Simulated assay, not measured.
Amino acid sequence: MKLIINTSSMVPIYEQIIDQIKAMILNHTLQENEILPSVRALSKELKISALTVKKAYDNLEQEGFTVTVHGKGTFVAAANTELMKEEQRKEVEAEFELAIQKGRRYGMDDEELKEIFALILEE
């Protein structure tokens, strides 16, 4: 599993891990029931603390993306299509929010932004 950690990013390392694993699950790079690297193996590979990886794995499990079986490892959870759709929707909303903020910084009003959105949808 290829994860890229940006140590100069303002995003905490555990969140970078979470985001990348979620993306791999959402785009089906990681399949249902596929085992993730052990906490120790991933921490060694990324040269980070095992506690950081553990925190990321715990968060993924709390959000329903993974399941941990004691003594066996952490696995990609069975696909919950509603959870997947909601996660994808949140990602798209975040991108729209960034675009709207950028447009407003450039002095665009809501009507201009709506026109641009309508134009893009027509393509």
Rank of each mutant, 00 (worst) to 15 (best):
K2I: 12
K2F: 13
K2Y: 15
L3Y: 05
I4N: 12
I5V: 05
N6E: 14
N6M: 05
S8I: 03
S8W: 02
S9M: 12
V11S: 06
E15D: 08
E15P: 01
E15L: 09
E15V: 07
Q16M: 10
I17V: 06
I17Y: 02
D19V: 05
D19W: 06
K22M: 02
K22C: 07
K22R: 08
A23H: 13
A23Y: 15
M24F: 06
M24L: 06
L26K: 07
L26T: 11
N27I: 07
H28S: 15
T29L: 13
E32R: 00
E32K: 01
N33M: 09
I35W: 00
I35L: 15
I35C: 06
L36R: 06
P37N: 01
R40P: 00
L42C: 02
S43N: 04
S43C: 05
S43T: 02
K44H: 11
E45K: 09
E45R: 09
L46G: 02
I48K: 04
A50K: 12
L51E: 09
T52Y: 02
V53E: 08
V53K: 03
V53F: 05
K54N: 03
K55F: 02
K55H: 10
A56F: 03
A56K: 04
D58P: 00
N59K: 14
E61V: 11
E61P: 02
E61T: 08
Q62S: 09
E63Q: 09
G64I: 09
V67E: 10
V67Q: 12
T68E: 15
G71R: 04
K72T: 10
F75D: 00
V76I: 14
V76R: 10
V76Y: 04
A79P: 02
N80R: 05
T81K: 12
E82M: 14
L83I: 01
M84A: 14
M84P: 01
M84W: 11
K85E: 13
E86A: 09
E86R: 12
E87K: 11
E87Q: 14
Q88Y: 03
Q88C: 06
R89Q: 09
K90N: 10
E91D: 14
E91M: 11
V92S: 03
A94S: 13
A94H: 03
E95C: 09
F96I: 14
E97P: 02
E97N: 11
E97S: 15
L98Q: 14
L98A: 08
A99R: 04
A99N: 03
A99L: 14
I100M: 08
Q101H: 07
K102N: 07
K102H: 11
K102S: 12
G103W: 00
G103L: 06
G103P: 00
G103K: 00
R104Y: 10
R104V: 15
R104N: 07
R105W: 04
D109Q: 11
E112Q: 02
L113W: 00
L113Y: 00
K114Y: 13
E115W: 05
A118Q: 15
L119R: 13
L119T: 13
L121V: 14
L121I: 15
